[in-house]
Design a protein around this nucleic acid. Structure first.
Lengths: 234, 234
DNA sequence: CGTCACTTTGAGGTCATTCAATTCGCGTGG
DNA sequence: CCACGCGAATTGAATGACCTCAAAGTGACG
């Protein structure tokens, strides 16, 4: 299945300012494919043959080493992943699998690199995307080194709260096992961290979290734009 | 002091393929400056006014949050730092200070962005630089999440050993306090980690380390190109 | 030769993981 | 419709990793 008729993809910062004919060319080479949940898409160490874009569903980026495994990121629509490997024509550093039924757009790496050489606006967009990706990674790294597990959880709850309207009620977008791995802790520890946040007014009922005293949570984890803020891509 | 006559800078992957007149223009706007050791260069949170290039000496990138501090990277000649902030016209995410007497080239951000718009080869070089930076960051992040402190130390010793000729004798390029912070542990713990590596044939005398049984160290920390390898920029 | 920063070592405590057992919710199949 | 099984989530206890505090040793440098 090929797809040229995806306005969401065309609207992505990465493709928005491309020349129409270059975008068409790219889309003609691309595959739009449905995947069930829990399908392995790529393995770290493999050559980067495709740039992926999550059109629908959710993809988990993770890594394994010596019997340990950790979640590096969750990718939701509409975003691309593993751009850096494609640009470098290198090996993937992360593995990827779907966590829900998903629709993914797969664009062959050579086409991305060809379009990059040809289309100056696309090249600029790639620069922005990589710079944002780099800074996001730096923030994750800083969070891991500068905060405790419970603080990281609290900070993430505050971000989710903002993203979900700031009502004080947050619905976790994936299961707690995954959240724990993303935060760099075990599921058991995540449970205990939730329990520890109770004294700051955080209530847990399944995957819906209620934050009654946002200021107290802020005092505890000290959110910072230098660690927590998402970057707008514009 | 301004400097147009720095062949090392011109030879950098970032500038190598620029148009001569664009490079000249950039250098005419740049400052080459000497700094004593332990001088604060930039603070996280400040707007990114300059791109920095370490021509001589050494610069530590670090971050503080809530009374904690951690070293994020050490930059040695001849390399640039904080390119992503400059490109994004954003705020620095890391602070920087010299750890030795250093010569730094400072290029105003606007000039970098102007050259980026004008010079396609420069734009391509920036893409490569950012992609490499991103992948390096991912590797650090993975190492922190997937390895213990002692394993991270062992892996770093192996990398340094390769970089220093593979003789089995490594000279630490900075003091142990800094190394500890870079590895994400305390100085006390670094000492204990060195002691723990003794049984794999690692001997410590001041800042020179002797690795008598490289295979044993490898079996212990399981080095991987997906975590440890430096990326060539070419 | 004294000072000061770096490093090492020890003791004690905290945080996080592992292992084990239990509970809960959900979907499957009888 | 209910019993059952399964995976996810929680809780407890024990272990291990890492940090803090304190003190002593080492070396560089004025």
């Amino acid at each position: 299945m090929r797809a040229n008729d995806l306005p969401e993809v065309r609207a992505l910062p990465l493709f928005r300012s491309m020349e129409p004919e270059n975008f068409s060319e790219l889309m003609n080479a691309a595959y739009l494919q449905r995947f069930p949940r829990q399908v392995d898409l790529i393995f770290e160490g493999e050559p980067a043959d495709f740039l992926y874009i999550v059109v629908e569903g959710c993809v988990e980026l993770f890594s394994r080493h010596a019997a340990r495994e950790t979640t590096l990121a969750m990718v939701r629509p509409v975003r691309s992943f593993i751009l850096a490997a494609v640009i470098r024509d290198a090996v993937y550093l992360m593995s990827a699998r779907t966590t829900e039924v998903s629709r993914l757009l797969m664009i062959p790496s050579e086409n991305i690199r060809a379009a990059f050489e040809k289309d100056a606006a696309f090249a600029r967009a790639i620069v922005t995307e990589l710079a944002v990706g780099f800074r996001t990674m730096v923030k994750e790294y800083k969070a891991l080194k500068l905060r405790s597990g419970t603080e990281r959880l609290a900070a993430r709850l505050l971000i989710q709260n903002d993203a979900q309207g700031g009502t004080g009620r947050v619905v976790l977008p994936y299961d707690k096992k995954t959240l724990a791995s993303l935060l760099g802790m075990t599921p058991e520890n995540l449970s205990r961290s939730f329990a520890a946040l109770k004294k700051y007014g955080v209530g847990v009922d399944g995957n819906t979290i209620d934050i009654t005293d946002i200021e107290a949570v802020k005092r505890f984890c000290r959110p910072s734009v230098l660690i927590d803020a998402d970057e707008d891509i514009f």
